[in-house]
């Protein structure tokens, strides 16, 4: 395995950070501190953390409505993220975007997105720019199983393949488009099968295993950096909560929920790292303590940040 100890701890740390952020977001939404919609990423942390461990700040990602995990994995700062969820002026978007529109172009985060599948053509465009400018940057496009049924998926994968663009399409298959199980929306089991239509590699991995995700993503990222074009990577996973907060997910079978919770990527990876002698109890506790501290700071930052002045309504429409 071509991965160092520090990188393994880094992936684990990102996963903890995402889970803790989502837990706090859940509580703060319930406590009416966060307006609007919140779509939690809890359960899918191994995908964002495993993929983004292959990226640098120069690489791009496009994200989704369930985007907090991608943003944290790509280096998004918790203070500005939390303040954005609150709709405060100290947020990433000065409170104008909210959970579904957080972006940090400086970090290569081209935005979460409220439209399912909309990141795909934008990712192709960003990858086109990297190829045109002859940098070795790649773009990772995160999307769900539902988005693979959009026309954007077909147009973007086809164009990216025809132009050999440095983009990795990462499908987080959590098996549900809101309440609709994959089996009602498509007649295939593995979304990666669709790669064949575009003449690009397609691979399905256990999306709750960060190392499997890391290795598969590494191959795809290396391929893209070398100029060999796009790949489609499907990561099978499970969202622990509803589609958004307020959705009880009554449509999920209890036995499925139980089975998948037993495959929760975080305790699984923790056990593995302890077995490998990379972490031990006190080290894990120290990581948790640091994450908790940073989150407390982020919430404090968000609480103290003022709401945007009403004059902000009219700014930033045009450059």
């Amino acid at each position: 395995m071509d991965i160092g100890k520090e990188q393994l701890i880094g992936i684990f740390d990102k996963m903890l950070r995402i889970r803790a952020f989502e837990q706090k977001a859940k509580e703060l939404f319930a406590g009416q501190k966060i307006p609007g919609f919140v779509h939690l990423y809890a359960g899918e942390e191994a995908v964002a953390a495993g993929v983004c461990a292959n990226l640098t700040v120069k690489d791009y990602i496009t994200s989704t409505h369930r985007g907090h995990g991608h943003l944290i994995a790509k280096g998004g700062r918790l203070n500005e993220m939390m303040a954005e969820l609150f709709g405060k002026s100290g947020g990433y978007c000065k409170g104008k975007g909210g959970s579904m529109h957080i972006a940090d172009v400086e970090l290569g985060i081209l935005g979460a997105n409220g439209i399912v599948g909309a990141g795909q053509p934008i990712a192709a465009g960003a990858a086109f720019a990297s190829k045109y400018l002859k940098t070795d940057a790649v773009t990772v496009c995160f999307f769900g199983d539902g988005a693979s049924n959009r026309g954007t998926f077909h147009e973007s994968l086809n164009l990216a393949s025809a132009f050999k663009l440095p983009v990795i399409f990462v499908c987080e298959n959590n098996q549900y488009g809101i309440s609709n199980h994959q089996s009602t929306a498509m007649n295939i089991l593995d979304i990666s099968d669709r790669a064949k239509s575009y003449g690009i590699p397609g691979l399905t991995v256990d999306g709750n295993d960060p190392l499997a995700v890391f290795e598969a993503a590494k191959e795809a990222v290396d391929r893209a950096r070398k100029g060999d074009g796009p790949s489609l990577l499907e990561c099978k996973t499970w969202r622990h909560h509803g589609h958004f907060e307020g959705d009880s997910s009554f449509y999920k079978k209890p036995e499925d929920q139980t089975a998948w919770l037993s495959k929760d990527p975080i305790p699984r990876f923790e056990k593995k790292l302890i077995e490998l002698g990379i972490l031990d109890g006190p080290k894990v506790a120290a990581l948790h303590a640091e994450v908790d501290k940073e989150l407390a700071e982020a919430i404090d930052f968000a609480e103290r940040s003022p709401y945007p002045a009403v004059s902000e309504l009219l700014t930033d429409v045009l450059a």
């Binding site: 909309a118 960003a126 086109f128 720019a129 400018l133 954007t152």
Partner: peptide, 27 residues
């Protein structure tokens, strides 16, 4: 490389412009 024939994919064409512009080009 600079005068690019695209597939018949208007969605991807406007997306190409949007993404490439956000990443520093002037399409």
């Amino acid at each position: 490389e600079r005068v690019v024939d695209t597939p018949i994919s208007e969605t991807a064409i406007i997306g190409l412009g949007t993404g490439a512009a956000a990443a520093g080009l002037r399409p």
